[in-house]
Amino acid sequence: MNEYKLTFWQMKKEKITKAIIITILIVITLPIILTYTWLVLASFSTDMKYGIIPVKLTLHNWRFLWKSIEGYPPIWQVFFNTLILALSVMGLEVFATILGGYALSRFKFRMRETLLKIVLVIHAFPSISLLVAIYYILKITGLIDTLTGVILLKASLEIPWGIWIMKGFYDQIPWEVEFAGLVDGYSRVQVWRKVILPLVKPGIAVAGIFSFLSGWSEFVFINTFILSQNTWTLSTYVKAIIGDFRFVDYGLLTSISLFYIIPTIIFFIFANKYLLRVNITGTKG
């Protein structure tokens, strides 16, 4: 370790800079932290004094967990709908991207470059501009008002991006490792399964997590294409409570919002170690 002789002013300057940076960070994150704190407090309180101070502890707002709210479908049905949607989107995406990413990374074929560009461009379109066209397609295929329709739709819009991510991870694996597998007595498919796939695990995790979350939080398509209450998901449920024509039950709204966030938080806790290993190009050794 080198020891530097810092003058008094240099040390002061360093401390001041640090203090400024920390202040800025606090100011930026404060709204986010306050919002969530308010959400938690409000959900367990009967009323908020001046809108911010909790008055009396209660579980009344969480009653939707054990009894259904009048005029709304039972919460667990909605929860499972959401879960099915998220998991199916994840499953489809992982399946498609581990294959597609490998092909785009490893095989040389005509139009490969063009295909990669098109995939990016397609992903860049705001999906809301496709609503009308999609409506017709779903109508013709008879998938309107079904979860399957939304699952297929969501997955197909998420897959291109996932393929790019997976391609980045495959690109990181040297050809020599694949060659070694071939020479060691395996077919190309076996090498892919036994050698390559375990090495892109972080990529699979990333694609899986993001597609799960995007399925979990999907709102536009559900709101547009799902009409009947028994195929609602949590996002439509929250929206319905906000848009209730009678009166808005803010307590209920806060607790349901929190309920909606919980799986996301759990997912992130588990996925953290994979997400941190991702950089722009893929995974670090």
Binding site: P174, E176, V177, F179, A180, G181, V183, V195, L199, G285
Partner: peptide, 10 residues
């Protein structure tokens, strides 16, 4: 076969 990078399975 032995490769330059050894190509061991990490």
């Amino acid at each position: 076969m032995v490769f330059q990078s050894y190509a061991l399975y990490p």
